[in-house]
Every structure is written in structure tokens, then in C-alpha cells.
């Protein structure tokens, strides 16, 4: 992905333009930028601030308040492991230990090959079929450690 200065400027401008007419548009703007770049780079902050008539501190404050927004690039795909109670009741703690060991990273980390980042999540709304995790935008149910390995293996395989 080209995240050179020009690309960033263009993407921020596009996001600002799309939401120019919306009241209180900071969140949609940040989401739009992160959807394109995978994170909100530091150099986007002054551009957003100017575009929305906010201070840099306000923009920065919002980015750091919310768990979703990232200031540094992350892996190609994010794996969200559910840590909440329904999943705990079905072995999420063991799954968590397994996933961290297999990927060799902790929460907030990215695998050295840049493929996966690991994040905790507190509920995916799949609580009747726990434990749950989300890979990209796909939610998976009843994920045992074996199933976790199989899900990774399926993704490793080149598409037929």
C-alpha cells in the first residue's frame, strides 16, 4: 500500500470532503481514513484538525480515546479474540493462550511477517456459540484451539 505523503493527503482530503456537510464528523472521518490506510498516521492529524476546525489536541485526544483507532500500521489482517464472559465460560482463556503462543505475539502485537495483528474484543454478539473470534470482518463460532489452527491454515493456503 502506498502510504507516501501524497497518498495520505489525498485520502484525508477525500474523507473530509465526503463528510464535510455532517455535524460532528470526526469519527466518520477517522473511520474512513483508517479503512483506507489501516491506521491514522500522525501527519493526518493536522490536516483533519484544519479540515474540521478543531485543535490538533482534540483530534489526537479522540484517536487515543477509542480502542479501534491506531496510530501505527498493523498487520494485513486483524484477529480479534473475544475476552468477555460468555466466551470465558467456554474456554476463551485457553484459546487466548493458544493463539498468543501460535502467533508468537501478545495483544497489540503484529507477527514479524506482517500478516496478523492480535487484539482483544469484549463481545462480538455471538455469545450462544462461544468462544468467538473475528478475522478481518468474519466472525467464527465455537473456536477450539484446533479450530484456530485450521482457520489459520486455510488462510495460508493459496486460493485455488
Amino acid at each position: 500500500m502506498d502510504t507516501g505523503h501524497h497518498a495520505i493527503t489525498g485520502i484525508v482530503a477525500e474523507a473530509l470532503q465526503r463528510h464535510a456537510a455532517d455535524e460532528g464528523a470526526l469519527m466518520p472521518v477517522l473511520h474512513a481514513i483508517q479503512a483506507r490506510l489501516g491506521h491514522v498516521p500522525a501527519e493526518a492529524v493536522p490536516l483533519i484538525a484544519t479540515g474540521l476546525n478543531l485543535s490538533r489536541a482534540e483530534v489526537h485526544g479522540v484517536i487515543t480515546f477509542y480502542h479501534d483507532f491506531r496510530t501505527a500500521p498493523r498487520g494485513e489482517t486483524t484477529i480479534h479474540l473475544c475476552r468477555a464472559e460468555a466466551c470465558q465460560a467456554m474456554g476463551a482463556r485457553a484459546l487466548e493462550a493458544h493463539a498468543k503462543a501460535v502467533l508468537g505475539i501478545d495483544y497489540g502485537g503484529t507477527t514479524p511477517d506482517g500478516r496478523y495483528s492480535l487484539e482483544p474484543v469484549y463481545c462480538l454478539g455471538n455469545c450462544a456459540c462461544s468462544p468467538s473470534l473475528r478475522i478481518g470482518d468474519e466472525v467464527h463460532a465455537r473456536v477450539t484451539p484446533e479450530r484456530f489452527d485450521a482457520l489459520l491454515a486455510e488462510r495460508q493456503r493459496p486460493a485455488p
Binding site: P28, G61, F65
Partner: peptide, 26 residues
């Protein structure tokens, strides 16, 4: 208009949600 949260539990509390809808910290 549909707006997305950003992974903060507290934004379910109604006034925090309103702050977030206004583009602020929750």
C-alpha cells in the same frame, strides 16, 4: 444517519454516546 462506534464500552452510556456522536472523546 448511521454512525459507527470505535470499540469503547463506555460509549453505550447515553451521554458518552452523544459525545461520541458529536465527534468527541466518550
Amino acid at each position: 444517519e448511521l454512525r459507527l462506534g470505535a470499540g469503547a464500552y463506555i460509549c453505550g452510556e447515553e451521554t458518552s454516546m452523544l459525545e461520541s456522536l458529536e465527534g468527541k472523546r466518550g
